[in-house]
Each structure stands twice: as structure tokens, then as C-alpha cells.
């Protein structure tokens, strides 16, 4: 910095160091977009069936329900916490919907039960984490076993089937042409969370808490309340995903959505959400969902076994996270600010 003569005029600090275009080019999302385009082109090149609109529409089901969970989870992770119980909340919500269905519940009741179960489960996690100050990783590993355990007790090795025909609309219906109800929901929820995180003061508080919860509290942010709301939202989205998945499958087994918590975490982290909290954007999670969906679909078209897909997604995750570090190391002389 140049020494500046002190004068009586106030010296204003300028607003931004980098222009908007520079920020966009250097962003994580640009890198993900590049990866998405490459995977898209590889898919087009390797299978003649890939570009069919209805095939692509089917492919979206690979990520819509997981994406709903991942968006809310992204906010939880940015705040410096984690929710590993999401898939178990989904299972419990689906099970209770099935139980209600056997007692003659209609479509509105089923949806309310699905969402309500999510909210209650989220509130339990939220109270344990924010009120009692317990570490969320321990709390949600506990509730992960607890919630799915209840499903197993209710269902045993049986399954609920025979949901009302109207209920199928959520998971199997189409709003317009090839655009499914789930895809539209995915877009709406993505927009909702993007607006919440990037355009509201609530979103700003999430970043502050994730970066330094103590300083956030010392700045008058109600840390406990924000965290509680985030767990509530996470539970609600798991409930919404339960409605969609149950509707699409038309049945409930206690093993429903096993392992989805890790896929949702993967989606968030691949999307540039810092697993240690404090940074990341919803746009990245949308791109990560598209990438994971396309990889799954592309490999499916080529009859690649599922285990190879998970190896590929794992490698992709490590690769995408390692790239910026490697690039930084290759260009150490570049100065910042």
C-alpha cells in the first residue's frame, strides 16, 4: 500500500477489489459448469439414446429427490453443522405415510404427514444441537439409527403398497411435456434456497455463523435460533423428498433411500460447499446434482455396473476438490490483492 497523506477529507475505501466478470470466471461454479459440459458431450458421443428428450427426462429422477435434501443440507453445512439423519427422516416419513394410508388417509393427509414427520424430526435434531449444544455429527448419527430403527420396528420385513392413484402425481406426474412434477419442484426449491442463502440477511447470518460462531454471537446474531431453523428446514426437505420418492415407487420399505445421506453430502461438497462451513453457493449444488445425475444416467445407458459408478463419483469428488489446490501450488508466485 502506498502511504497516503492524511487530510481532513474522509478517505473512503473503494468497494470491490475484483470486477464482477473476474469473480465469475474464477468461481467454483465455472469449473463445475465446465465439468458438466464435458460429461454431457461425452454422453452424447458415447450413446445415441442420450439426447432423446424422454430419456433425459427420466434421467432427472436420478437427482431430483436427493437434490431437495442436498439444498437444505448445504445450508446446514455452511453453518458449520451437519445432518446425517436426512435419509432416515425420509424413511420414517415414508413409513408413517404408509401407516396412515392403511388407515385410509387421503392424498392431502399423506402429504401433511410426510412433511410433518420431517419437521418433527428436524426439530428434535435442532433442539439437541442448538439448545443443548451437542455436536451435530453425534446427534444426527444417533437420530439416523433412531429414525430408521422406528421404521424397521413398524414394518419389519414387510412393505406398504397400494397408495391411492392420485398420490402418484408427485413422483410420476408431468407438469408440461417432458417436465416432471419432481423436476419443477427441484427447480422451485433450488430457487427458494438460493434466494434464502444469497439474498436475505438470514443467509448472511448462516455464513457468519459458519465462519466464526463466537464472533457471530458477539455481533448480535441469534446463533441458536438460526441453527434450529436450519435443522427444521433440513427435516422438512427430507419429508418433501419422502413424499416424492414414496409416490414414485408406490411402496415403502424400511430400507428406502439407504445411503442417501452420504450422496447428499457428496452432492453438496462437490457443489463447492465447504465441509468445514462458511462458504459455498446453491448454484454449485445444482450443477453437482446435474453432474451426478448425468454420470449415473450415462453409465446406465452403457450398462456399467453400479459399483463402477460409485467409484467414478468418488474419484470425481476427490479430483474436483484437488484441482484448485493443485492449480494454486503450480502458480505460487501469483499475488493476491
Amino acid at each position: 500500500m502506498m502511504p497516503v497523506e492524511k487530510s481532513s477529507e474522509p478517505r473512503f475505501v473503494r468497494d470491490r477489489l475484483q470486477g464482477r466478470s473476474e469473480r465469475i470466471v474464477k468461481s467454483w461454479e465455472s469449473l463445475l459448469l465446465l465439468v458438466a459440459v464435458v460429461i454431457f458431450l461425452v454422453n452424447v458421443w458415447s450413446s445415441p439414446y442420450f439426447l432423446d428428450p424422454w430419456n433425459l427426462s427420466d434421467a432427472t429422477f436420478n437427482f431430483t429427490e436427493k437434490g431437495l435434501i442436498a439444498f437444505a443440507l448445504a445450508l446446514v453445512i455452511i453453518s458449520g453443522e451437519i445432518d446425517l439423519s436426512v435419509a432416515s427422516i425420509l424413511a420414517l416419513a415414508s413409513t408413517l405415510m404408509g401407516l396412515a394410508m392403511t388407515h385410509g388417509a387421503g392424498v392431502p393427509e399423506l402429504v401433511l404427514i410426510g412433511l410433518g414427520t420431517g419437521l418433527v424430526c428436524g426439530a428434535i435434531n435442532g433442539l439437541l444441537v442448538s439448545r443443548l449444544g451437542l455436536p451435530s455429527i453425534v446427534v444426527t448419527i444417533g437420530t439416523m439409527s433412531l429414525f430408521r430403527g422406528i421404521s424397521y420396528i413398524i414394518l419389519g420385513d414387510k412393505a406398504f403398497t397400494g397408495y391411492p392413484a392420485d398420490f402418484a402425481w408427485f413422483g410420476q406426474g408431468y407438469v408440461f411435456w417432458v417436465f416432471s412434477v419432481e423436476l419443477v419442484l427441484f427447480v422451485l426449491v433450488a430457487v427458494f434456497f438460493a434466494v434464502l442463502l444469497h439474498m436475505t440477511s438470514f443467509g448472511r447470518m448462516i455464513y457468519a455463523i459458519g465462519n466464526n460462531p463466537v464472533a457471530a454471537q458477539f455481533s448480535g446474531v441469534r446463533v441458536e435460533r438460526v441453527k434450529f431453523i436450519l435443522f427444521l428446514l433440513s427435516g422438512l426437505m427430507s419429508g418433501l423428498a419422502a413424499v416424492c420418492l414414496t409416490s414414485r415407487l408406490g411402496s415403502t420399505r424400511p430400507s428406502i433411500a439407504t445411503g442417501w445421506e452420504l450422496e447428499a453430502v457428496t452432492m453438496a461438497v462437490l457443489g463447492g460447499i465447504n465441509i468445514l462451513g462458511g462458504s459455498g453457493r446453491i448454484g454449485g449444488v445444482v450443477l453437482a446434482a446435474l453432474i451426478m445425475g448425468m454420470v449415473t444416467f450415462g453409465f446406465g445407458l452403457l450398462n456399467v455396473p453400479g459399483i463402477v459408478m460409485s467409484i467414478f463419483v468418488g474419484l470425481l469428488l476427490i479430483l474436483v476438490i484437488a484441482i484448485p489446490k493443485v492449480l494454486n501450488r503450480l502458480a505460487p508466485a501469483k499475488k493476491r490483492g
Binding site: M1, P10, F12, V13, R14, D15, R16, L17
Partner: peptide, 11 residues
């Protein structure tokens, strides 16, 4: 500015 902060930019 009131505190005469020395910084390159506010971001």
C-alpha cells in the same frame, strides 16, 4: 472512513 480504515477494498 470515519475510523480512517486502511484497506485495499471493502470486499
Amino acid at each position: 472512513a470515519r475510523l480512517d480504515l486502511r484497506a485495499a477494498a471493502l470486499d
